[in-house]
């Protein structure tokens, strides 16, 4: 049973307050949607939760139920999909998947890659350079990379951006598939996306 404990979290950029007094506690099986208007700090909150930004106040604690997880746990436990997370344009989709597997210390077979690409609707396109992908195909590939590990914490920032209806269905199916065994955090303004989560964190 994994836990994510957010206590009195706040973030400022200089004089500008982005958000403050954010507290929630999630355990495996829980999901939360972070909602708010443009510029309200949804993506910033996700970056703070992922330790990509240092909070101005408060704490974020990851634990596996028994002990706190150290800073290296991201490599193993966390997957993140976001419009501002990019993959390597001058590598093919297969090369991207192989690279992100190897650099995390794992191995992957050709069959597993094909299965993963098929799962996100990119079957037969693995040998194409990502540079030639549409924005929707790139978004699908990000999900394939996210699923290279079995995440305990799944962070989705605007999860269906750039996706067509078929792509959106893939994302909604994935959320349903992972819901029971994963902590899911979604940052969005789309009703159909935040309705995927059980809890709501509204930023003003």
């Amino acid at each position: 049973m994994y836990k994510l404990d957010v206590d009195n979290l706040g973030k400022r950029f200089g004089e500008r307050k982005v958000f403050s007094k954010i507290s929630f506690e999630l355990k495996t099986g829980d999901s939360i949607a972070v909602v708010g208007s443009n510029g309200s700090g949804k993506s910033t909150l996700l970056k703070v939760l992922l330790s990509l930004l240092v909070p101005s106040r408060g704490t974020v604690t990851y634990s596996n139920g028994e002990e706190k997880l150290d800073d290296n746990h991201y490599r193993i436990t966390t997957s993140f999909v976001s419009p501002y997370l990019n993959l390597y344009d001058h590598l093919t989709a297969e090369e991207n998947l192989k690279f992100f597997t190897t650099v995390a210390g794992n191995t992957i077979t050709g069959k597993e890659i094909n299965n993963l690409l098929a799962k996100v609707g990119l079957e037969g396109r693995g040998v194409d350079y990502v540079l030639g992908y549409s924005s929707g195909m790139k978004q699908r590939l990000k999900y394939a990379v996210a699923l290279l590990k079995k995440p305990e914490f799944l962070f989705l920032d605007e999860p269906t951006s750039n996706l067509d209806e078929a792509g959106k269905k893939i994302v909604f199916d994935l959320v349903e598939e992972y819901r029971k065994d994963t902590i899911i955090i979604i940052a969005t303004n789309e009703k159909e996306e935040y309705e995927l989560a059980e809890k709501l964190c509204r930023l003003t």
């Binding site: 990509l52 490599r75 966390t78 993140f80 997370l85 990019n86 993959l87 992100f100 990379v145």
Partner: peptide
Amino acid sequence: TGTSLALKLTAD
């Protein structure tokens, strides 16, 4: 190219 984020979250 914005790839450092994916690298940070995957590699030590």
